[in-house]
């Protein structure tokens, strides 16, 4: 592989890794605090894409403002979902917690997909790009919309890390994710923290959908493949680990892009792209079953 082709794949891999990281971070945050796997995460990502499309393309809002609207809208949607559908688990109203969480989030995913299908139809939409044009570094050409979207994504991730590390609310999220009962007896409102975590996780998924919408188009089933990658990433990085999710996403992005050059025929190589992540996951799980940053847990 020439150095140019290699650099191109590295840049593409890192950019796509940022989008993966946004989606995976949200999933990881929700799992960390509420201990449930959100099977509707891909549909929250899709909703983010649609909110962005409506505000940027139909209402003519500046693209960055439309991304922020998507974040806020999905934050509110996430809080409402937690309050209505997930909270019963913690009120002792659900007997089989794991099964309930799978069924309810899976059902929500189907509902949201079909809701968008009935409102917008099955056709793809291409919303306004965040930035038009391309950036040239020597012979290397990077499309501007992807780079700008990744830039906004990095800022949002930085913001999340700051909130988690330094703010009172972020520390509450970390405390509840370590031990819900202990957090409760020191006065942390676990219910509100759960809503906050689901809201933040949904906002990140929405941001990813909004940022990627102009690049990969917006349609009701757009979340299906990316969310599988988000699952791969959170398992790869270690369930509930924030640095694990970011690193896992960048590794997956790079691995997928660099591995395509293994097959000389580009069309065939791209067709296998989604499979590489799963191969990587299998290899990591053989040697490190708890993921890169996960803790070993023995289930009793």
């Amino acid at each position: 592989m020439s150095l140019l082709a290699f650099s191109e794949q590295v840049i593409n891999g890192l950019i796509i890794g940022v989008f993966y990281a946004l989606a995976a971070l949200g999933l990881s945050l929700i799992f960390g605090v509420l201990k449930i796997v959100n099977f509707a995460h891909g549909e929250l990502y899709m909703l983010g894409g649609f909110v962005y499309y409506v505000f940027a393309s139909l209402f003519g809002l500046p693209p960055v403002a439309a991304v922020l609207v998507a974040c806020v809208a999905l934050f509110l949607v996430g809080m409402a979902i937690e309050h209505l559908l997930i909270d019963p688990i913690y009120r002792g109203k659900v007997e089989r917690v794991d099964e309930y969480a799978i069924m309810i989030t899976f059902g929500l995913a189907i509902l949201l997909q079909n809701l968008m299908l009935s409102i917008f139809g099955p056709w793809t939409k291409r919303p306004e790009a965040i930035f038009r044009g391309r950036i040239e570094i020597g012979e290397l050409i990077v499309s501007g919309d992807r780079l700008a979207a990744a830039g906004v994504g990095i800022v949002l991730m930085g913001l999340l890390l700051y909130v988690l590390r330094y703010t009172w609310a972020g520390k509450a999220v970390r405390a509840v994710s370590q031990d819900r009962e202990t957090a409760a007896i020191v006065g942390v409102n676990a219910k509100l923290t759960g809503m906050l975590a689901f809201g933040l996780g949904s906002a990140l998924a929405g941001a990813a959908g909004a940022l990627i919408g102009p690049v990969f188009l917006v349609y009701p089933t757009m979340g299906v493949i990316p969310v599988i990658k988000a699952y791969v990433i959170v398992v790869l990085g270690g369930l509930g680990s924030v640095p694990g999710a970011i690193l896992g996403a960048l590794i997956l992005g790079l691995f997928e892009n660099l591995a395509t050059v293994l097959i000389p025929d580009t069309t065939r190589a791209l067709a296998y792209k989604d499979a590489y992540g799963l191969v990587l996951l299998i290899v990591v799980l053989i040697f490190r079953p708890q993921g890169l940053f996960g803790e070993k847990v023995r289930r009793s």
Binding site: A175, Q178, D179, E181, A184, I185, V186, V188
Partner: peptide
């Protein structure tokens, strides 16, 4: 807890991944 009732548990419950001091500085 906020109203003034504190407790300990039979099986000790602490935030194992935080430092000893950080355990006393969690929100709440």
């Amino acid at each position: 807890a906020t109203a003034g009732i504190a407790r300990s548990f039979q099986v000790t419950k602490i935030f194992r991944r935080l430092s000893v001091l950080e355990n006393l500085l969690v929100p709440g």
